[in-house]
Write a protein that binds this DNA or RNA. Structure first.
Lengths: 249, 249
DNA sequence: TCTACGTCCTAACCTACGTTAATGGCCACA
DNA sequence: TGTGGCCATTAACGTAGGTTAGGACGTAGA
């Protein structure tokens, strides 16, 4: 399962992500490449970590999409985050007794398993790296807050547009988007479970976004035809993503 | 402004909160009491930290209620968290360039300002304490996720009930609730801005919760008359709060 | 070639919640 | 002893989004 070939630096998504926050030394970069060497494959639709589990490793997404989700007693599902290359599933969850939610692969996913010990030495030896990973968790928290705002205070149309804007920026940050087009492997059911809507209504709003020439969506690829229009429909302000580079485009 | 009298241990909410996660040594306890000695008062309705600010200190709520909030371009407000005694406003926000939201005092609030330096030495010298504070931030994250589930997938009635259950557990954890009654200094407008509803509809649902003898609410005090009934109306499962003690009651 | 299944799409109808607006209680302050 | 402001409450009415139930299409596997 585990391949031992190191990813070339240019393809390492964590490197790209953290590099967008602060410049990293050659040693820091190599330490990251080294830490993410043990890559494992997970099939689509399989849990990477299940609710109630107590993981021994820290899991880092190298390739593919995953979703954090919770199941309600009545069987309904709420997705609380999307995880894309460069995202940690459970950066410090070893402190808690057990997972209070599950993480499922939406596509075939490559995960790097990083042992608790390896993580500790990484943080101890490389304070700048630790700082960069702190930054990443704080951004994740900011994203959670923005999702609350999104679901709580925007209508269905703006909600979808906002999610698209966010995922576009995040995909660009790890070199997974170009020219406003990127891989969005979500069904309308996923979108519904993410945004607190029904699949039927998601469909209606997608039609509208298409009719207004803001997006093209098909074959699991999203193309943003009119970035300015989409952002204004969403009321999107990227500052909560705390990127160094100029935000938005 | 700042009073120099140390809070007696029994009244220090952070001590109570962290103690609910792991037993703390005498030295750890004194370190916390010492760190929270510089207490400052903030009037109700004033920002403790404003959007865009870059705080120099870490702020710890010692007494009173505060709310994290974001304002949308159209002027609407979404509250993304309630902060009660023992909660940090911005535990590691010094890493980010600036705040991406504001924090407002809902009642007169006592805040302890802890300098960045003091925080660092606390973490360096007392690894157990650092671990306990990690735990607290992870729980905060879990709460954010649960709020997404709450707003996304529960109806208005269950949403309100769920918030009440959560705040009850959290208030109990810091010794601020007894016999199912506690101080809830929120207007119906606050509840609306928290739960993605309108004040009018909040009112309707409160009437219903009262009519069904689940709660009493008045004079800024919430009394939970029927804890089991309220929890079942909410679909509340406290495991996301990761307490040591038996959850729920 | 047929069947099974997942996904997208649409239509008709329904309801939980929003909107607007008015009333009354309470309390601080003149 | 008023008066203004905040807050809770209620009613009448409007609508965004939910529900139910289909049909069309593509793909996988027998």
């Amino acid at each position: 399962m585990a391949t031992q070939r190191d990813l070339p630096e240019a393809e390492n998504p964590l490197l790209m992500k953290l590099g967008g926050f602060m410049p990293l030394s050659r040693d820091d970069r190599q330490a990251i490449v080294h830490a993410s060497r043990k890559v494992r494959s997970v099939q689509a639709h399989c849990d990477i970590i299940s609710d109630g589990e107590r993981p021994n490793h820290v899991h880092l997404i190298i390739d593919g999409w995953a979703a954090r989700y919770k199941i309600l007693p009545n069987g309904e599902r709420q997705i609380t985050a999307y995880l894309i290359p460069g995202d940690f599933c459970d950066l410090h969850v070893t402190i808690l007794r057990e997972m209070d939610h599950g993480i499922v692969a939406l596509t075939p996913v490559s995960v790097a398993d990083i042992s608790r010990h390896e993580m500790d030495t990484l943080c101890d030896d490389r304070p700048r790296l630790m700082r960069a990973m702190w930054w990443a968790t704080l951004v994740d928290e900011g994203v959670l807050r923005e999702w609350i705002v999104n679901i709580g205070r925007r209508d269905a149309y703006a909600r979808i547009a906002h999610l698209m804007c966010e995922m576009h920026v995040r995909m660009r940050n790890v070199g997974r988007a170009e020219e406003g087009a990127f891989h969005l492997p979500l069904t309308q059911d996923h979108l519904a479970d993410t945004l607190g809507l029904t699949p039927v209504h998601i469909n209606r709003m997608l039609q509208r976004l298409r009719a207004e020439h803001l997006i093209e969506l098909g074959g699991r690829t999203l193309t943003i035809l009119d970035p300015v229009g989409l952002r204004s429909a969403a009321g999107f302000d990227a500052s909560y993503l705390h990127n160094n580079e100029q935000n938005g485009r």
